[in-house]
Design a protein around this nucleic acid. Structure first.
Length: 947
RNA sequence: GCGGACGUGGCGUAAUUGGUAGCCGCGCCAGACUUAGGAUCUGGUGGAGCAAUCCGUGGGGGUUCGAGUCCCUUCGUCCGCACCA
């Protein structure tokens, strides 16, 4: 373990002047030790093969202009405590922090003010750092990373190039260099859409070619073919276009049809676009959820987002055309119930299959449907559709089946076409009812079920009217029909995913440049040795007059004379691998050294918000798996254990003004008047009592305010809302620390409740933890004098201490921080009652507390004569013998109801306890001469007498 | 609609394997010290009742000697996803 020696100046501070600070002066103590830790680089961490590693990571923040409120540090405090605990337990703990510094808000601000995002980002970062430093975290700041730093994004670009130069081989089930694919083409060519090489989101047709044809292709043709396989690729894609932000957004950046940042409308648009083939990893992303310890809710979100469904594709031959319509269905067992086929309005066959007489109606319908935004489509859930005039032939019966267009069919899922079975699908049913299409029952429904008025969607029942399937249960029918479909060559068993490839290009300035240039229209990766491609200066952070992204404004935005890509990477690029950079943050030759990667491995504990469930947490898993496939990192998953801290909500306070007056009525009297509730700054309210003087100066118009009081006080109303400026309920950690100290603040945040739970912030409770720290401090002082004795403590004192040690150990593994804080309180209460001031108790107690309240612990540790930091102490060894009891007050219950307690030696056996209990006077009285039916004795727990 | 989380005093919460429900803290009540208290310290505090006692973990049912904890059912709150074929 690294030995941290303290400067000599710190030592006489205490021993020579033991009485110089008599009361707990947190301001002085905290400032002093924060400086000492910094000067001594106490939290610096190096690879150390002699000790087990532990990697504790916080999701790094986006440094916004608003700074931190009390909700933000919750997870940081938890991870800090855990890190300190693990250090005391002998682990070499990597606990870094950095900034996710590229992103939209800084750029929007830049557009409004002309201020360069570098400047505002820098300012926001220093503000964040100041606030973080106040709390006394044990981050190794020498490892800080910023995603906007060229020495960092050089490697983000490098990883992009690896993705660009790789493809996913379904045979080896991993990513490989694109060269292995080229070799394959050179030898075997490509056998078209049935080729097993196609993976992920490659649904569109890629014509087959022979090896010979391949070698005859031009460079451009080869590039176009390979683009269908690269893991980072440029392709036509339906994207979420946000006109207000002037950029494309990924699916997870769109919530309810509007942009997550700013709430602007988003529309579907087909664009040439850089994308990430995350769909190639869909199965592994799903399956490996089994091997990681993440919360059920996050895993469920990811499963939901990936959306795996098993079924089959099925071709319907168009009558009078040589084309077929391919549908995807999870219910091929209902194929005999198909009464029409529905295409998405965007489906590519719509134009060619529509008959002349239907042309006008179809055109009108498609135009209306296409122009609707996603949001409008979601809101207007009315059934709508249009007949194309075309027919397909049923693959089994040969019957003619009409082809319709329906808005309820999504272009982006499956093949954009469905076989409609109205009898067994509620959506098809609604459509059929609307347009009076036949409803053919093919699965038995419960007796009395009217299939004409409601569909039977359940996967239960026997097949009827289904030829070869008749009499089979659904589950059996499914496998039977898929086999049959494949034998007839009309389709094949298939797994479909909801997950789409991720849009990667952003038409914005403040992001990593994509290291690609165009050589005669052929996209090529910038050479590794030329990285990083530095973000250029531009005159304005706006698109060009011709609508090109801001980077097109940069002078000489070229690479060896070729134009460079003008879109930039999305916010999630830099955060998809930062956990790796922390292991070796200053490496100029690699994103991280292989030995560092090997030593630190994966993140042991990752703490962050659940809002990243389907964005960051999916992408970081994807990139990790990719880098693993290509042999760059040893781990398959970035984080073994993930915990989502709950949100801290605001607790707003209200005052009640009488209408058209400047008079305010106290809460319980408000209904006697016509009043209007108004938010009042929670910082001038304590325990719901308004500080009237502060209120008068809060706003000029309040100077003359009058009050209707109750019991001489003005009581405010309260409500739990989101913490936000406009609601005047923001509580700033700096204010809390100024008033109560960082240690107190840390304890209180943890004391609020379980880490994962969302809860409102209520400042009143903090006096409890403040009182605890004073009480703790008083254990070490007699009046004004620091007094810790060498005498031998009472057994009871040892018991109190070891009870605490046991609790904290257990709690740390469960991440139950709130119960630990309460155990500290119990312990200090007990030690105070016992008047304990012995070193043998107080020293280990200080070490245990140091993980939670490091400043006060360091100070007292120092006062006890130590010249090294408490952070390099060892967690006290639990001695169970102090916890052993020789007697136990058995609760004696009758029929499960406890009546009284009986103190009995724990050496007594079950039988002896039973005898002793039955002889007791109280028991005889309760039994009133009757014989107990049964006596249950649980040793050391309870006695239950059944009468 | 589907999925997840959760319902315990006035409030935040605790109860580790099914074994004394309400630990710890806030608030509240009383007292001490004080010119004063939004300071500090001490004691009390689930509800009803003078009391013995009774009731009590959203509601109902079940398993068990024993259920806050397990099972079924129902209601409510929060969070996801949502025409995903």
């Amino acid at each position: 373990m690294q030995f941290t020696s303290f400067p000599n100046t710190a030592i006489p501070y205490l021993r020579n002047h033991p009485h110089c600070i008599m009361e707990y002066n947190y301001r002085e103590i905290e400032k002093k030790w924060q400086k000492a830790w910094k000067d001594n680089q106490t939290y610096r961490v190096e690879r150390d093969l002699s000790r087990p590693k532990c990697y504790v990571l916080d999701m790094f923040p986006y440094p916004s202009g608003a700074g931190l409120h009390v909700g933000h540090p919750l997870g940081y405090i938890a991870s800090d405590i855990y890190s300190r605990y693990k250090r005391l337990k002998g682990f070499n703990v990597l606990h870094p922090m950095g900034y996710d510094a590229f992103g939209l808000p800084a750029e929007q601000y830049a557009i409004q003010t002309g201020q360069h995002p570098v400047v505002t980002t820098e300012q926001n970062i220093s503000r964040y750092r100041e606030q973080l430093d106040n709390i006394g975290f044990c981050y190794d700041w020498s490892r800080e990373v910023r995603t906007c730093d060229p020495s960092y994004y050089k490697w983000t670009q490098w990883i992009f190039l690896q993705l660009f130069h790789s493809w996913y081989n379904p045979q080896s089930d991993k990513a490989e260099p694109i060269e292995t694919l080229i070799t394959h083409f050179e030898q075997f060519g490509f056998s078209g859409s049935e080729d097993r090489l196609l993976t992920g989101d490659v649904e569109h047709e890629l014509p087959e070619f022979t090896a010979q044809q391949w070698s005859g292709f031009s460079e451009k043709e080869k590039s176009d073919v390979l683009m269908n396989f690269r893991l980072a690729y440029l392709g036509e894609a339906w994207v979420n276009w946000c006109p207000a932000l002037g950029t494309v957004l990924a699916n997870d950046e769109v919530k309810e049809g509007v942009s997550e940042r700013g709430g602007h409308p988003v529309e579907r648009k087909q664009m040439k676009q850089w994308s990430m083939r995350i769909t190639a990893y869909a199965d592994r992303l799903l399956n490996d959820l089994e091997i990681i310890e993440w919360s059920d809710s996050i895993k469920e979100h990811q499963r939901n987002w990936i959306g795996r469904s098993e079924g089959c594709s099925l071709y319907f031959q168009l009558e009078g055309h040589h084309e077929k319509i391919e549908v995807f269905t999870t219910r091929p067992d209902t194929v005999f119930g198909v009464s029409f086929v529905t295409l998405a309005p965007e489906h590519e066959l719509v134009a060619s299959v529509t008959t002349p007489d239907r042309q006008q109606a179809v055109n009108e319908y498609v135009t209306v449907a296409k122009n609707k935004t996603e949001r409008e489509r979601q809101i207007g859930k009315t059934v709508s559709g249009c007949f194309t005039g075309a027919y397909v032939l049923h693959p089994f019966t040969g019957n003619k089946i009409p082809v319709w267009i329906g808005e309820y069919v999504l272009a982006g899922y499956g093949t954009g076409a469905v076989m409609a079975v109205p009898a067994h699908d509620a959506r098809d049913h609604a459509f059929a009812r609307m347009y009076d299409l036949p409803i053919l029952q093919v699965i038995e429904a419960p007796a009395g079920w009217d299939i004409q008025s409601e569909s039977w969607d359940s996967k239960e029942g026997k097949c009827i009217n289904s030829g070869l399937l008749d009499g089979l249960e659904v589950k059996v029918a499914l496998t039977t029909i898929i086999r049959e479909i494949e034998q007839r060559g009309v389709g094949k068993g298939k797994v479909n995913f909801r997950l789409r490839d991720a849009a990667f290009g952003r038409q914005r300035y403040w992001g990593e440049p994509i290291p690609v240039y165009y050589d005669n229209g052929i996209p090529k990766g910038v050479a590794e040795q030329d990285l990083p491609v530095i973000l250029p200066e531009v005159d304005k952070f706006l698109p060009t007059e011709t609508g090109e992204p801001p980077l097109a404004r940069a002078a000489a935005w070229t690479y060896h004379g070729h134009p460079l890509e003008t879109t930039t990477m999305p916010g999630w690029a830099g955060s998809s691998w930062y956990f790796l950079r922390y292991m070796d943050p200053n490496n100029a030759n690699a994103f991280a050294d292989a030995e560092e990667l090997q030593y630190w491995g994966d993140v042991d504990l990752y703490i962050g918000g659940s809002e990243h469930a389907t964005g960051h947490l999916l992408y970081v898993r994807f990139w990790t798996k990719f880098l693993h496939d290509r042999g760059y990192v040893p781990v398959k998953e970035p984080a073994f254990r993930l915990v989502n801290q709950g949100m801290i909500q605001g607790r707003s306070n209200f005052v009640y003004r009488i209408k058209d007056s400047n008079t305010y009525v106290s809460f319980n009297l408000r209904n006697n008047y016509q009043t209007m509730p108004l938010h009042v700054d929670v910082n001038i309210v304590e325990n719901d009592v308004l500080d009237i003087e502060a209120f008068r100066v809060w706003r000029p118009e309040n100077a003359t305010a009058e009050f209707v009081l109750e019991d001489g006080k003005y009581i405010c109303g309260a409500e739990v809302e989101k913490m936000s400026k406009s609601k005047w309920n923001v509580v700033n950690p700096d204010d809390m620390i100024e008033r109560y100290g960082a240690d107190c603040f840390r304890l209180y945040e943890m004391f609020l409740g379980p880490l994962e739970l969302s809860k409102p912030w209520n400042t009143s409770g903090i006096t409890g933890t403040a009182g605890f720290l004073r009480k703790f401090w008083r254990l070490f002082h007699q009046g004004e004098i620091f007094t810790v004795t060498e005498s031998v403590p009472d057994k009871k004192a040892y018991k109190a201490l070891h009870k605490l040690i046991k609790r904290v150990q257990d709690d740390m593994e469960r991440l139950s921080f709130n119960t630990s804080v309460s155990s500290f309180m119990i312990c200090v209460n007990e030690l105070t009652d016992l008047k304990v001031n012995q070193r043998a108790i107080l020293e280990p107690l200080t070490v245990v507390l140091s993980a939670f309240a490091p400043h006060i612990a360091e100070e007292l540790w120092n006062r006890m004569g130590h010249t090294t930091s408490v952070t390099v102490a060892s967690f006290p060894h639990l001695q169970e013998e102090y916890l052993v009891e020789d007697a136990f007050a058995y609760p004696i219950s009758f029929n499960g109801k406890t009546r009284f307690n009986m103190e009995l030696a724990l050496t007594l056996t079950k039988e002896e306890v039973e005898t002793a209990v039955l002889q007791a006077e109280e028991v005889k009285k309760m039994l009133d001469g009757k014989h107990p039916k049964k006596v249950v004795v649980v040793h050391g727990r309870i006695v239950n007498i059944v009468v």
